[in-house]
Nucleic acid binder design. Structure first.
Lengths: 155, 155
DNA sequence: CTCAGTGCAAAGGATTTGCATGCCG
DNA sequence: CGGCATGCAAATCCTTTGCACTGAG
């Protein structure tokens, strides 16, 4: 399993638009104004965002179109949906737009923060998971490793 | 962070009821007939269950009461809710009623299977997570490590 | 021109809640 | 007895969808 984008200088917003454009085209989707705007908002946030976050940052975007375009972006491999129990789902760029990372999920306020682990930990986890997966006849696609607890604000 | 219940003989249904009773009492909840029945169903399943699974196995339980009681059991630390993107949430016993484990989540059919990892992997992961958590002022409660992919049936 | 994309409003579906009744302690 | 627990139905809330219109290629 790959480690996503190698650590290095963060992608510029132009880089991001370029990659997104390619991925959308590959799936026969157009890179429209609304979709660019949506990508801008996600990039500006720098952390996983919810739908309310997005429409607050860009009120000119219709809620239904945002949901539809998040779906398009997800199908195109541009964003990942992070399922949170209960309220709104969170969305963030998928690898390799974002390097491989994990989440600190606050059980009180629902905030989600990105964190990275050492490569040797990731490798060990991947090997371990690959082993149990093959034992179960399961084809691994990606793993998620989240820490649930209380964030600095809620503690 | 603890590893949950040490590996060993599985708890009997009586053990489970005893533990659940204690935990409910500790939170000033009663261990009623409906709640026992609900615990029986979860125990019998042996894998994470959804609300439809539960009411199918025990049609005499009212859907709303099952939701309410799952909430009570969750607050009491008896069950964990596993958020799956999209459809129904899955529920299973929390530690230490179930030993520490992780999930193989099928992205096609939504099925969730429990798996265990080697202790040395768990320890390394815990240490790593504890480190990034403290760096972020985050108080860890528990971690989840899930593998997303295609199960044997859907592949 | 043509078809994907958009906006609005309404539908869908999982989960929650109000309220009257039942049952545990 | 007194209050928590239950059942039914209606309400909520996030998300999806139908449909007519707009805009990109």
């Amino acid at each position: 399993m790959t480690r996503g984008r190698a650590a290095g200088p963060p992608l510029t917003i132009s880089d991001i638009h370029a990659v997104v454009g390619i991925r959308l085209a590959r799936h026969d989707y157009r890179y429209t104004h609304s979709r660019r705007r949506l990508v801008d908002v996600i990039a500006a946030a720098g952390q996983p965002v919810t739908l309310p976050d997005i429409v607050e940052a860009a009120p000119e975007l219709a809620q239904s179109s945002v949901y539809r375009n998040l779906d398009v972006l997800e199908r195109s491999g541009v964003v990942d949906r992070i399922a949170s129990s209960g309220d709104h789902a969170h969305f963030e760029f998928a690898e390799p737009l974002l390097s491989h990372h994990h989440h600190l999920i606050c059980m009180d306020c629902g905030a989600i923060e990105d964190v990275q682990l050492d490569d040797d930990v990731e490798e060990l986890v991947d090997r371990s998971l690959a082993e149990v997966a093959s034992r179960a006849g399961f084809t691994p696609r990606r793993h998620s490793l989240d820490l649930h607890g209380s964030c600095a604000d809620c503690d």
